[in-house]
Design a protein around this nucleic acid. Structure first.
Lengths: 304, 304
DNA sequence: CAGCCCTTTGAAAGTAAGTTTCATCCGTGG
DNA sequence: CCACGGATGAAACTTACTTTCAAAGGGCTG
């Protein structure tokens, strides 16, 4: 393997575990088995010797080493150290809660609520931790300087895309969102240098969004991608890649935690953009808020 | 050395570092040199190999091993792991987080990210804490038993409403969402006993949503409200009131944390409903996921 | 559909790290 | 002055980690 992309070589700002789970789908089967063991119990993995871990993952030591390299470590000892550090930092999970796991069949509503909230909150926190401010800055720069911003997303990510469009619009940026691929493609074809195209896809494999970004990029627009998987196909058409850190579980196919994580990133970008021109953005927000005031009853004052 | 003191063999409750500095005077000179290095910079020591550390302490590997045993470790790798964990624990976040407050004008992106994530995560957690499982249960009952579910929401809450509709739809419930008041009113007029109308409004003052719920209620439908303010006007037309716990701040007029809180509640309801008929819901989710598979490229694995 | 190429994988060889053994050194007390 | 015992490092040894390589599988192309 001559290429060894080594995503985020030096430091994953936030969590190594988070980083690994993001990379998980891009790993080979045998490496995935190792990754799952590591993610499931980092502290335990740190205690094991490489041979031990290899056996537990039903593979060879060589594969474990390959796994280490795949996630950006130099070798096994380094991984061990990092895992130990990581495990120590995180507060041991309140055991009642199913961390990143599925919701048990017999769960009552209170348990469901606790589990969901826990995972949602985690997704938000971990996403923020691993978010690279430098990349955000670049994206903010691009958006601030853009003549026009197109936001693309399908399915659940479509809501997020739409939300971002609306936010940008509210602070006076020219932004569009298209629920329909054809219209989106048409729009992308009209983008040019200096414009920005933002593509949102949790899995990073949504061909519609990829195609549209491809088109946008071909026209000279700056492309920004928001995905959970740093090595997914969509990142190939991206100038800037922002990642979320949600670990969806079986029942959560409805993409629950991922939306929240995506929204958090969107919020950061939004505030970043707004902060660049504070008075104007604030004014715009006030004006737009005023515009919907007539649609509110009770003049805003809360009733006793 | 037949005796091998092995102080506190199994576990030093508090800090390993503290433990070592306590033992320091009782160690032999060469071991003391090692100990001093370790105490001075545990993280650095954890990174070194035994040979490296021995050299740095101007002694031999054998002495380092002796030192490990003296402080109760089995060997050097174990010491390394423990040191890494220890070091990680003591470096705690600087916490320049602005709790619930506005984002300071001069804030850099890293601060912005930390602040937003913190507030978002809090909103999610606090919402879950104050969410009443009993009321959720009633709402779930109503939805499970409903012939039809209408979800209403305007502006930012509209996204959430739409998201809920889509989720319910995906597990085979008959649900609708209308971006437009007129259509919504029409639909509400067609609801009847046993049907459910869900209204989402952060402020609880959105007259459009209130009117629609009023209409729905008049027709005999069960009305559910999701708002941040338990005494806002909208609650007057509600059979069941669910509340979020988001504290929006000035700049966050774009309704940032509130959306996340709302989504969390929606997720809870969704899972609650899905859990009532697990096999069918799971099947439905699988089928719908399959339906969009053709729109995904790659099998998720690695890049081209 | 055969053949090629690329990827993945584990066995085995090779290297480095960690551990044990043992001889030496040095200070102490008889 | 010699015997003794702890402290120490060199070297032998063991285990852990890393690299290499060949085989097997899978998919793409002609």
């Amino acid at each position: 393997m001559a290429k060894a992309p080594k995503i985020s070589a030096s430091g994953e700002p936030g969590g190594l575990i988070v980083h690994i789970s993001g990379l998980l789908p891009s790993l080979s089967p045998a490496e995935q088995r190792v990754a799952r063991l590591v993610v499931a119990d980092p502290a335990d993995a740190a205690r094991r010797t490489i041979t031990d871990l290899a056996t537990a993952a039903e593979t060879s030591e060589a594969t474990v080493i390959r796994f280490c390299r795949s996630v950006g470590m130099d070798g096994y000892p380094q991984l061990r150290i990092r895992l130990a550090a990581e495990a120590a930092r995180r507060i041991e999970p309140p055991d009642a809660r199913v961390v990143g796991g599925d919701i048990p069949p017999g769960a009552d509503l209170a348990q469901i609520i606790a589990t969901i909230a826990f995972n949602d909150a985690r997704a938000v926190e971990e996403t923020a931790e691993q978010l690279d401010p430098a990349i955000c800055e670049q994206v903010v720069d691009a958006i601030v300087g853009a003549g026009r911003i197109d936001v693309y997303g399908a399915g659940a990510s479509g809501f997020v895309a739409s939300d971002f469009q609306q936010k940008l619009h509210r602070i006076g940026r020219i932004a569009f969102y298209f629920p329909d691929v054809h219209t989106a493609l048409t729009s992308a074809a009209l983008l040019g240098r200096g414009d920005v195209a933002v593509g949102i896809s949790h899995t990073g494999t949504t061909s519609d969004v990829i195609e549209v970004l491809e088109q946008a990029r071909a026209r000279g627009a700056t492309t920004v991608v928001l995905t959970n998987f740093p090595r997914s196909p969509i990142t190939e058409v991206a100038d800037h890649v922002l990642t979320t850190a949600a670990r969806e579980t079986t029942y959560r196919s409805g993409a629950m935690a991922s939306r929240l994580a995506q929204l958090t990133v969107i919020d950061c970008l939004f505030v970043g953009v707004a902060a660049r021109n504070r008075p104007r953005a604030r004014k715009a927000l006030e004006v737009t808020a005023e515009a919907v005031r007539s649609r509110r009853i009770g003049t805003g004052r809360r009733r006793a």
